[in-house]
Design a protein around this nucleic acid. Structure first.
Lengths: 327, 327
DNA sequence: GCAACGTTCTGGAGCGTTCCAGTTCCGTTC
DNA sequence: GAACGGAACTGGAACGCTCCAGAACGTTGC
C-alpha cells in the first residue's frame, strides 16, 4: 500500500528488466525489441506510471517545456496568440506553461525570472511592456522570443510583430475612401506599436492630401468635443478597447455612429462583435504570430540565429464605419 | 568561459565551503553563522546563482509551485480569480504556473495531467467544465481545489463557488421591485451553476407570486420574439456575455433597453462598463474566491481536510435595468 | 569452428539539490 | 586538564531520470 508515485524502477521490477531499458522503451528510443517495448508499455500503463518531467529534465538537460509570459490575462488580444503558440507546441511535442505580469514591467521581469528558474527550454514573451534590456538580459539565461513590437534589441532575442504601418494605412485609407477628410487618431501609449501607428497615421494623412491639422490625442473627451465642433467625422483608434470607450462616449453624447462619426479600431478582438454598431477593426493574424514565434524559438533551440518576422494585418469592415456625413 | 549556469557547487568552491553549507545559507536555514551566510549570499549573487527549482523539488519532495488550470483565457470572469490566487500565493511564498483547456473537458483533463506531471505541489482548477470524476481522479495524484460550482464530489477535492441561488434571487427581485412581472430567464448550459441559477429563478418567481408561465430558454431570438409580443419586459441572463448578445439583438430589433426591456447579467465582467446601456449585473467576489481557494489548498498541503466554501454575490445596478414600461 | 558483427539489454555515473549523520572546533564547567 | 555541549560545518546518499560504455547472445561469413 505504498502511496508512492511509481517510478521507472518500479516498472522495471515489475517487468523484470533494467530501469535503463524501461527508460528507452518509454521514450520510443531505438534498441528495444518490439515485444519487450509493448510489454513494458503495458506494465507502465497498468501501474499508472507517468514520467517525472523534472527528473527527466535534470538528467537530460532539456525539459521539452517552454514558458509563455503574457502581459495580463485580461487582454483578449494576447490570448489568441497564446493559442497559436500552444497549437504549434503541441504539434512539436512540447509542453507549455503560462505566467503573466499584470501589465507591470516589474512584475513581468520577475515572472520571467521565475519561468526561467523552472529551467524551461525557452520563453516566449507575449507583451510589449518589457524593456529591450530586460529581454536581452533574459536571453543570456536561455532562448527568448518576444511577440509584440519592440525597439530593435540585441540580436539574441527573436521577435514577431504585425506591420503597424500597413495597418494604420489600411484604416485611414478606408475612412478616406468613404469620403472622410477630417480624420482624427485616438492614440495609444508611447510604446513602439502605438508610436508606429501614430506615425503611419500622419504619413497616410499627408500622402492622401487630407487637410491639416491632423488631430491626435489619447483622450476621448477631446475627440468628442472635436466631433461636436464639426472638426472630426472619423476616428482611427489605436486599439479596440479605446474604440469601445469612444463608442460609449459618443452614444452618451448623442453622436450617432456611423452616421455622425466613423470609427475604426485595431486588433479585431471579440469586442468588435459584441458592441453596437459592430466595430470595424484592423486584424492581426494572431494565431499565425503565435506559430511563427514558436518556430523562431525552436530554431533558436536548435542553435539557429534569432530572427525578427513582421506579418501583415488586414482590415475587417463592420458597421462602425460608414460614408462621411455630407458637410 | 563556461557558459554553464552556476550551481551551489560553484558557489561553494568560490566561498571555500561545502555545498551543504551553501544550501543551508541560501535557504535561510539555521546552523550557519551570520558572517558566513552573508559572505555566501554575496558570492552567490555575484555569480548570478539562481536556485534550480526542480532539482530542489526532486531532492526535497516539494516544489513550492502550484499549478492553476483555467477554462480558457478568453473569459474575463476567470482572470480575476487567478489574480486573487496569485496574490495569495505570492504572500505565501509560492510560485504559480498557469495552463488552460480551451473550454474543452478533454483538453482540460490532459492539461491537468501535464500540470501534475510537473510535480507541482497542488493544483487549483478554475473551471466548472471538469467532471467530478476527473477531479477526483486528479486528487489521487495530489491536492486539488476547484473554483466553480460542481455537483458535490469526493471529499478529497476542495471547492469554492458563489451562491447562485442568492445571485439569481437578487437579480429577479431587483427587476420585480422595478415593477416587472413578465420576467424571462436567458439560461446557460446544463452545468451546475447554470442549473442552480435556473432553479433559483423559478423559485424566486414563484415566491414573488409572479404570473406563470416563466419563460426560460437559451436562445436570444425566442426572447426577442417574446418581448415583441409583449410577453416579456425584463430578462435575467445567466451571464454577461449572454446579456451582451441579448443587448445587441435588442438594438438590432429596435427594442430599447432599458425602456422596453430590462436586462440583468451575471459575473460583473468588464463588459458591463463597455456596453451601452451599461449592464446591471450580479457580482461574484472573484479575488476573494481566489484567495479562499489558495487557503483551502495550503490547508490541504498541510494535511487538512478538503472543504467547500460558498461566498455571497451582490447586485451591481447600472443602466440596463429600469422601471417596467406601463402596460 | 572461430572471428566479427548487430541487436538487445544492463549497470553505474551524473544532473543540482536536500537531508541526515557525522566531524571539528571552541568555550564551559568541575 | 579532562569531559562535556553546542554551534558551525562537511561528506555522502538520495530524489527519478538519462546517457554511455560495455555485456550477453544469436547470426553470419569464411
Amino acid at each position: 500500500m505504498s502511496s508512492h508515485r511509481p517510478t521507472i524502477v518500479d516498472v522495471a521490477a515489475a517487468a523484470g528488466v533494467s530501469k535503463s531499458l524501461v527508460s528507452l522503451a518509454l521514450r520510443d528510443a531505438p534498441g528495444v525489441s518490439a515485444t519487450t517495448r509493448a510489454r513494458i508499455m503495458a506494465i507502465a500503463d497498468d501501474l499508472g506510471y507517468r514520467s517525472h518531467t523534472w527528473a527527466r529534465a535534470l538528467a537530460a538537460g532539456r525539459s521539452q517545456v517552454i514558458g509563455i509570459l503574457l502581459n495580463d490575462l485580461h487582454s483578449a488580444y494576447h490570448t489568441d496568440i497564446v493559442e497559436g503558440i500552444e497549437r504549434a507546441a503541441d504539434a512539436a511535442g512540447l509542453t507549455t506553461v503560462l505566467s503573466h505580469g499584470q501589465r507591470d514591467p516589474k512584475v513581468l521581469a520577475q515572472r520571467l525570472g521565475h519561468l526561467q528558474d523552472l529551467s524551461v527550454d525557452g520563453v516566449i514573451v507575449v507583451s510589449a511592456l518589457l524593456s529591450p534590456d530586460a529581454l536581452a538580459h533574459a536571453a543570456q539565461r536561455g532562448p527568448v522570443v518576444v511577440v509584440g513590437r519592440t525597439t530593435q534589441v540585441a540580436d539574441t532575442v527573436g521577435a514577431v510583430w504585425n506591420n503597424d504601418e500597413v495597418g494604420a494605412h489600411l484604416a485611414v485609407e478606408h475612412l478616406a475612401r468613404l469620403g472622410h477628410t477630417r480624420i482624427a487618431h485616438l492614440a495609444g501609449s508611447h510604446r513602439p506599436a502605438s508610436q508606429a501607428r501614430r506615425a503611419a497615421f500622419h504619413a497616410t494623412m499627408t500622402a492622401l492630401d487630407l487637410p491639416a491639422p491632423h488631430l491626435v490625442c489619447d483622450d476621448t473627451d477631446t475627440v468628442i468635443a472635436s466631433v461636436r465642433a464639426g472638426a472630426t467625422t472619423a476616428v482611427f483608434a489605436s486599439n479596440d478597447t479605446r474604440a469601445a470607450r469612444l463608442l460609449g462616449a459618443a452614444l452618451d453624447a448623442g453622436i450617432s455612429v456611423p452616421g455622425d462619426l466613423g470609427v475604426v479600431g485595431y486588433d479585431n478582438t471579440e469586442l468588435t462583435e459584441l458592441l453596437r454598431p459592430r466595430l470595424t477593426s484592423v486584424d492581426q493574424p494572431r494565431h499565425e504570430m503565435g506559430q511563427r514565434a514558436l518556430a523562431i524559438l525552436t530554431d533558436l533551440l536548435g542553435g539557429g540565429p534569432a530572427r525578427v518576422e513582421v506579418v501583415a494585418p488586414r482590415l475587417i469592415v463592420r458597421d462602425s464605419s460608414g460614408p462621411s456625413p455630407t458637410p
